[in-house]
Design a protein around this nucleic acid. Structure first.
Lengths: 135, 135
DNA sequence: GTTCTTGCAAAATATTTGCAAGACG
DNA sequence: CGTCTTGCAAATATTTTGCAAGAAC
């Protein structure tokens, strides 16, 4: 599915900003922050527009938000698009890269009585291969 | 160990702000945000001072920072103080409560070649018993 | 007394909101 | 053409920094 098809499927208007975000996110081999997406995009969109687009795409489960820290939020394609299972994320402390570990499924945690769960976020923090080699 | 002893052990000065933060965090049955800690503290400290204290306590592995979302960061005692294992955290979407699930250990994830891990954060999002009952 | 910590003012950052103009279907 | 989206300006909120005064040891 390409960006346009995805938007159509979800009955969202095909705007160049949304298509651009999806194209960039799909091409990247990693999760991207708002500024990283903006840099890679030809069009010069307002940040407000980006944030609203992210919210819309997130609500429709097209992209997924990964919160690493207060000032480090990244976005990647949602499982419903990649057709992968729920997975863990890797965060490199050296280069701030965030990557979906598509092949690492998340264990089903057994909650205490009374708690009901919806989603589980797993972020493994460490050093990525690229940064490790540079030591 | 009480707050004063903890600070002494780490060769940190015993200031009333640090002791106060530790007392509040130790008494709470859940993780607390900066504003929640400030509300529960008698002394009227500057927010700057709080943030600097958090950073210091975190660097010394006395407290642990749990980032739920861009504008929702909470703090709880670190494992080195509670003497518990690494554990998952629960976040209630209804009341914004964050709780350490001390008895739920974190699975050891097998990373792809080249990745080295240091810490793993697990946040399970759902509804807590209290909020569930109120439906 | 030296060093580390605090408070105040001000800045940096990310994100959100209101509203009129503009684009999509 | 009606509805949803964008851009601009301005507001929120959290967190950070510089620096002089104050507290800890």
């Amino acid at each position: 599915m390409n960006p346009a098809e995805i938007l159509n499927t979800h009955k969202l208007k095909r705007t160049s900003c949304r298509e651009g975000i999806l194209k960039v996110v799909m091409a990247a081999g990693q999760a991207l922050a708002e500024n990283e997406i903006r840099e890679r995009l030809a069009g010069n969109y307002d940040r407000t527009t980006f944030y609203r687009s992210f919210k819309t795409l997130e609500m429709h489960h097209i992209i997924h938000k990964i919160v690493v820290d207060h000032q480090l939020v990244k976005y990647a394609l949602h499982n419903s698009i990649t057709r992968k299972q729920d997975h863990a994320h890797f965060y490199c402390k050296d280069c701030d890269m965030v990557k979906c570990l598509d092949d690492i499924p998340i264990q089903k945690y057994q909650l205490p009585d009374g708690f009901s769960d919806k989603e589980t976020e797993v972020i493994i923090k460490g050093t990525c291969p690229t940064c490790k080699d540079q030591r």
